[in-house]
Nucleic acid binder design. Structure first.
Lengths: 233, 233
DNA sequence: GTGACATATAAGTCAGACCATTGAGCTCGG
DNA sequence: CCGAGCTCAATGGTCTGACTTATATGTCAC
């Protein structure tokens, strides 16, 4: 895990980042570098480095004679993996999961279509293997194993799309799926229909049927939206 | 334009960032903080802050006894606005524009569908106004004015979707559209069909026809993909 | 009230010292 | 000859204190 023993500034960030994204310091709040340094018991240099990172995430803005002001949430770099992790760990986790799921529902079908065109033989094989793994673990309280295959499945699709921007959403999807398994109501085994859809997507990609891969993935996405009570587009 | 007189560390970043994203320092290259500080004629503290920011973008990794090593491009935070700007300014701008356009083609139709459900009256009005502005400036070498309306149109759609992740892609879309107008072959007036589609999208959103708004926007996206010779999904 | 000026404040910058980690090379016993 | 373990040097990490710069705010003359 990210124990973050690596560097004082990282430890400060692991405290300050979540505090800000959680709204503990409301937008417009003014922090002073010196006070923060004392609060976290680190030198000014270390605190400055931490503030610089927060600034690069657009979480705060540093101005002379004023201090370090917290920026409104609309300006945050919400695609920064670290920011996403902090927000998922915070209070508005449900809200965040909804946003990310909607994003998934838009991106993954298109990614699957592209994957059907440009996936390598290895990727096709890996995809099929994952789908089979999902089938094998879809019954009998093997939620963790199932989750592993599920995450890997979607990661392969995104990578196989050949689009860099899509590929980078792999971690994001992993977080969403993990969140659903761990925090959502998922005491029972996964929906058999969803499992079946994954198998069919793997088939479609293997057979280079872009149209079908896209539509099947869209069905998976619709299912995910419904799980969160989001109206399907 | 971006004079970036705000802080020495920012000026260093404006040199180092583009250099790294342009591949001037290949993946695995080892830089040393002290050398960089001398090279840029700044103190070690300033250089450290710059390196911290690059590290938070996953452009480099800093390790003791080794130095600051450049990470492979696959690990960069490609959604960071600053990284996107640096890459768009660099040599692989065409490649970057393709990636971003594919992302647009996935996201914007879904965003339009959501906008049709949840756009406010003001947003509907602004959207219609933008569409009319596009019509008015679609003939007679008014490319810049047309671009302005186009950018605003798509920004409103993304904002009106009510999804935070979509809304944050506004700047990205603006960059893509600007890139198309300025760097692409676009000597002639915009495609009348595209203009018409925008007007229809505004109509569909105003009439709360999510299905139609999504499909029309998908047509716009297909057009954008064709302009870059990308196979439509 | 309005503009010019003074002042206080907090970030920005720098230089130098010392600490901590760790990769690489060396020693030595097997 | 080889590997385990040690030494050592190189590099980032941290701290301190002094100085600089920008600027919000208050003050005063008009």
């Amino acid at each position: 895990m990210t124990t973050m023993g690596r560097g004082l500034h990282a430890r400060v960030l692991e405290s300050l980042g979540p505090a800000i994204t959680a709204g503990e310091y409301p937008a417009g709040s003014v922090l002073r570098t010196d006070e923060l340094a004392q609060l976290f018991e680190v030198s000014r240099s270390v605190m400055r480095e931490a503030v610089r990172v927060l600034e690069s995430m657009h979480l705060v803005a540093s101005r002379r004679r004023v201090g370090v002001t917290v920026r409104p949430a609309e300006e945050w770099n919400v695609y920064d993996p670290q920011v996403i992790r902090w927000r998922l760990a915070g209070a508005d986790r449900p809200r965040q999961l909804r946003s990310l799921t909607v994003l998934r529902s838009a991106v993954e079908p298109v990614a699957a279509g592209l994957a059907a065109r440009s996936a390598s033989a290895e990727q096709c094989a890996a995809l099929t293997e994952c789908a089979l793994g999902m089938v094998a673990t879809s019954r009998g309280q093997q939620l963790e194993a199932y989750l592993g295959h599920d995450v890997e499945f979607h990661r392969i699709v995104l990578n196989a799309s050949g689009n860099e921007m899509f590929a980078h959403l792999g971690d994001l999807v992993a977080e969403v799926l993990a969140g659903r398994t761990h925090h959502q109501v998922m005491f029972e085994d996964p929906d058999p229909a969803a499992v079946s859809l994954h198998v069919k997507v793997a088939e479609a990609v293997r057979e280079r049927d872009a149209q079908r891969a896209e539509e099947l993935t869209r069905e998976i996405a619709v299912g995910a939206l419904h799980e969160l009570d989001i109206l399907a587009p």
